[in-house]
Design a protein around this nucleic acid. Sequence first.
RNA 1: GCGGACAUGGCGUAAUCGGUAGCCGCGCCAGACUUAGGAUCUGGUUCCGAAAGGAGUGGGGGUUCGAGUCCCCCUGUCCGCACCA
Length: 944
Amino acid sequence: MEYNFNEIEARWQKAWREQGVYRTEESAGRPHYYVLDMFPYPSGAGLHVGHPLGYIASDIYSRYKRLRGYNVLHPMGYDAYGLPAEQYAIQTGQHPAVTTEQNIRRYREQLDKIGFSFDWSREVRTCDPQYYKWTQWTFIQLFNHYYDNELQKARPISELVSKLERGVVQPEGGKAWAGMSEGEREDYLMGHRLAYLADIPVNWCAELGTVLANDEVVGGLSVRGGYPVERKLMRQWSLRITAYAQRLVDGLEQVEWTDSLKEIQRNWIGRSEGAAVWFPVSDALKFEIFTTRPDTIFGVTFMVLCPEHELITEITTPDRKAEVEAYVAWAKNRSERERQAEVKKVSGVFTGAYAFNPLTEEKIPIWVSEYVLAGYGTGAIMAVPAHDSRDFAFARHFGLPIRQVVAPERDAVSDPATWQESLDSKSGYSVNSGFVSGMKVKEAMAAVIAKIEEMGIGHRTVNYRLRDAIFSRQRYWGEPFPVYYKEGRPRMLPEECLPLELPEVSDFKPTATGEPPLGHAQKWAWDEASRCVVETSKIDHKTVFPLELSTMPGFAGSSGYYLRYMDPGNEKEYFSQQAVQYWQNVDLYVGGAEHGTGHLIYARFWNKFLFDLGLAAKDEPFQKLINQGMIQGRSNFVYRSKQDNNLYISKGLVKNMEEVTAIHVDINIVDNDVLDLEKFKAWRPEFAEARFELEDGKYVCGWEIEKMSKSMYNVQNPDDLVARYGADTLRLYEMFLGPVEQAKPWDTGGIEGVHRFLKKLWKLYDNYLNNLSGQSDLSNLNNRSNQSNPGKEEMKVLHQTIKKITDDIERFSFNTSVSTFMICCNQLTDLKCASSEVLKPLLVLLSPFAPHIAEELWHRMGEGDTVCRAQWPECEAQYLVEDTVKYPVQFNGKMRFTLDLPAAATQEEAVAAVLGAPESAKWLGGKEPRKVIFVPKKIINIVC
RNA sequence: GCGGACAUGGCGUAAUCGGUAGCCGCGCCAGACUUAGGAUCUGGUUCCGAAAGGAGUGGGGGUUCGAGUCCCCCUGUCCGCACCA
């Protein structure tokens, strides 16, 4: 019988779906395991072969764990809110809900064809009101909580209020709680809520009409679309993720992620230890700076404020005023891109004012420069040009003094005027530094901190590079905020009124007045009395109030989705305690490393907050994480002659690339770099009249590795491959390509080999089944092996395979597993294996990788139940032991002969065998060997 | 500039503990069966050499009886961050 993969795969996919084979229920007593994929954004382009790479790997592991007796949760869903659907809507007027629904259907079809074991009854979509109800609910909780630095966890804001009322806590601003007005109190609390509204400098992208989070901006351009981004002060919702900075750093110790990804997160959080120091300007005025090098305080020769610093207008002397104002205005108008492009250009202006160094009592000039950032530390620095490269460049540019206070060796002082660069190293000794002179840098740091703490002018502190996450987007296609505005202040909707559903709008573009698209909504106002959404026209600011017009960003919906999978149908809670106590957290998370500074930080923060609320079971959401490598595209080119615009020259005949134009050609009309001429002519009208210069009768295309993208015609669609080779071949081939974690170009060159293996495997089983029914040549049967009595050789092959496959899966080395199967199949074919005791367990081993063919053969072998519910075979050690092993015997590292020894030979037996061998005599010459290195089953090494 | 990862045949890769480097597959070469082959099967395929033999895991050095693997330096590629005080 032929291996008819299309028929087999369709039939089993249907059967699995109808029987609910992959349904998962909580079941006490069974060990549980949660395998999660990063859910996809359903884009209009559909899946390409890069998407399933991680899904196949996680599917293999899920199926393996199930066969091992685990109750496995392996869900899938859609990250369905996002910019592309909305931009498509703006262009075509199609409602994002409609296009999203279409895309989801297409994704689902494509996913189904690959034979994944997802429990689709648990599907979540971030744009489903029953899902985003809980995104909104979490936002309200964030608003109603603050971070208690003593307890190191989130607590209800009412507790803070109570502490303030009892005087246990004093407001930082100086003004007492009791003396505050209602408004002042609300402002104060807003400064502590974990979700808060504030005027903050944001990344504003005019082209997209929205603000963006830091991880959505790269090099001053938006990640999506690559449009310019500028800094702008806007009133925005933010999440106080910085409150969790320390826990986000600490938590990395507990999880099994790659070192590189942990390092990416540590860098992003950017923890640095140092000191905060107050520098007085006058008796009434002082300002705070942050430094990681308190030991260099004796080397301060000027101070620098960022252009946004509030003190600038107060301290600037009248004669400098015009110049300073001009500089500040210039700096503020510069785009983010200009700033970043001109990082090396030094600019700045002197304010005319001076600060006093509290340790040296010197008068130090105060400057303003954009190299000091408003968003980090206090937006003000003490400049130590001798030991900081940026301060050094600034000092050189403006001719400011440079004073050495650290020397690489004790008293190795030189004239800084001769220096080419600053001495930034922390190894060395303090010099010219008063009471710390002569100390090592580390000791000097501690001593200076102790001194300033004693003087009450500063303290040890920690700073983070991480910024609070801006949570407002001026977009339509996102979760609405459960917020309305009363007397100019935000109010949360009552929890019972959730979800607050996204309203219909007439236009997805921002309004003429610059309001977000929700400004177009006819019905977008909150009636406090009837507690429902009413027409916008009814807003009277007495009983009917305006609702928030911005929506939540993409990371809102993806921050807690893994928890919702545990209990997706729950209408009363985000997820039940019963479910979360059973599943705990994600055991294995598979996805791309590009989410390292976005989703993976936000989700950890979200989870930690829910953990503080007593909802999440674990502090960290993702125990083990595997980053699948990106699959790049392999583009093909044709070469058009520059002389003759209809002449296309085969690659080998192109003598000079100057004479031709390389044109991207659709990889679907190219096979093994050979162009299909007829399909090429039919591809696009301009090629209809094409003529070719062929080599050996073929047109050979050029190729290059590029990003997989529509515009380069190099997108490999999995459906075509499934139709041509079957899902099992695709699954095996994607794994065979190389380690899951590694980035690699997509190349169909080797897919035939994998497909050939499945055909051989099919034949192996087909022969066995034919022999059973006596339809074929019985001489194929091996004497040593029949159905009830497998030969020892076959058992050896089987058990070696069990061991290898089990080890491979445990360490996620799926590419080597595929090789192992090929070897096993070849060996069993050579042995003419005809024993169900060997062939059946092999199908169980194969089923995580190639579930359809395994299932089909499993049934043909007479099994009733699905192979998915079989038991993973145990490896029996007796079959792994070789009777004898050939040992290469080496003298002084040079191999001279081999010896047959029992596999279980000991050191003594090995030595005796070597000494007894006639070959030894000439090397040892009767002497005892100096040393014998014996590696069981591998090698005997003799040192003479 | 800072941080991280990687470097093995013509290609994708393997070598799990420091122990015969190159498994498996692609490609290529030769052969078999065929009217035919983009089907199937068999054998070969790191490089140099007719062979014997020699060289060999980006380059240089070190540790070791023994290094693709460990340490130091260099080169190259990829990724992350980037005026973060």
